[in-house]
C-alpha cells in the first residue's frame, strides 16, 4: 500500500489531523483566522490559485486532493512576508513548504510545475558533493525539457553566461568536479539517516 493510500484510510475525512501529524508546522493550521493578510502580502499572490488562507480553509474542509495537487504552494518565493505579518503568528512560509514537500513525498505534486522540478534538481545537485554546483544547476534548468529546447534556452541565456564568466562569477571548469566537502559519503550517510528517521515517523502515523 502506498503511503498516500495509507494516509487516506487512516485519516478518512480528517485532513486537518493528517496535516497536523505529517506536515512541517502543520499544527498551526487550525489557528488561521481567515483575515487574508498573507494573500495580500505575497509577492506572487496573483500567481496562486489558492492563497494561503484559502489553503488553510480547504484543509479544514477536508479538501485533501485539491490542496496537495495544487501548484499554489510551489509559488512561494520564501520571502517571509506572510510570517512577519500574520496577526496570529502562523509560520505560514514553513507550512507552505511543508505542504509542498508532503505532496511530493506522497508523489501527488503537480508534475508540470517548474519549481517542484527545480527543488528536486537542487537537492540532488547539492547532495552529490555537499555543496551546490551553480554551473550544473543552471544547465540542468535550461535542459529540463530535453535537448533541443535546452540548446534554445542556452542560446537565449548565452550572453548572461558570458557576462558571468567575464566577471569570474562562473567557472566553466566547475562542470568537471567543482567545489565540495571532503567526504561527501559521510554527509550522505548523515542525510540518509535523517531521511529514515523522518520517513519512519510519518509511516508510523499511517498505521
Amino acid at each position: 500500500m502506498s503511503t498516500n493510500t495509507a494516509m487516506v484510510e487512516k485519516y478518512r475525512n480528517n485532513f486537518l489531523k493528517e496535516v497536523e501529524a505529517n506536515v512541517e508546522e502543520g499544527e498551526w493550521v487550525k489557528m488561521c483566522m481567515q483575515c487574508g493578510v498573507c494573500a495580500g502580502s505575497c509577492p506572487l499572490g496573483n500567481a496562486w490559485e489558492h492563497p494561503p488562507q484559502e489553503i488553510f480553509m480547504m484543509i479544514r474542509a477536508g479538501k485533501r486532493e485539491d490542496v496537495l495537487t495544487s501548484d499554489s504552494m510551489w509559488m512561494c518565493t520564501s520571502c517571509y512576508n506572510c510570517i512577519v505579518r500574520c496577526p496570529r503568528e502562523l509560520p505560514i512560509t514553513h507550512i507552505m513548504h511543508g505542504l509542498a514537500h508532503y505532496a511530493k513525498r506522497l508523489g501527488i505534486q503537480p508534475k508540470g510545475n517548474p519549481t517542484q522540478w527545480f527543488s528536486e534538481v537542487f537537492w540532488n545537485n547539492m547532495m552529490k558533493k555537499g555543496r551546490v554546483n551553480e554551473l550544473k544547476l543552471g544547465l540542468s534548468m535550461y535542459f529540463k525539457d530535453g535537448f533541443v529546447s535546452g540548446i534554445k534556452e542556452s542560446l537565449k541565456n548565452a550572453k548572461l553566461g558570458m557576462n558571468m564568466q567575464k566577471t569570474k562569477r562562473m567557472a566553466p571548469m566547475e562542470f568537471f568536479g567543482g567545489h565540495g566537502v571532503k567526504n561527501p559519503g559521510d554527509l550522505q550517510k548523515i542525510i540518509k539517516k535523517a531521511q529514515e528517521l523522518e520517513a519512519a515517523r510519518i509511516e508510523e502515523h499511517g498505521k
Binding site: 512541517e24 510551489w74 518565493t77 520564501s78 513548504h97 511543508g98 509542498a100 514537500h101 511530493k104 513525498r105 519549481t115 517542484q116 527545480f118 527543488s119 528536486e120 537542487f122 537537492w123 540532488n124 547539492m126 555537499g130 555543496r131 551546490v132 566537502v181 571532503k182 554527509l187 548523515i190 542525510i191 535523517a194 531521511q195 528517521l197 523522518e198
Partner: peptide, 21 residues
C-alpha cells in the same frame, strides 16, 4: 568543510529533518 544549507528551495525534496540536519 562546511556544506550547503539547502537554501530556500531545498524543502521540496529535503523535507524537514534532512534539511535541518
Amino acid at each position: 568543510d562546511w556544506n550547503c544549507c539547502s537554501a530556500s528551495i531545498g524543502y521540496g525534496s529535503g523535507g524537514e529533518l534532512p534539511r535541518l540536519v
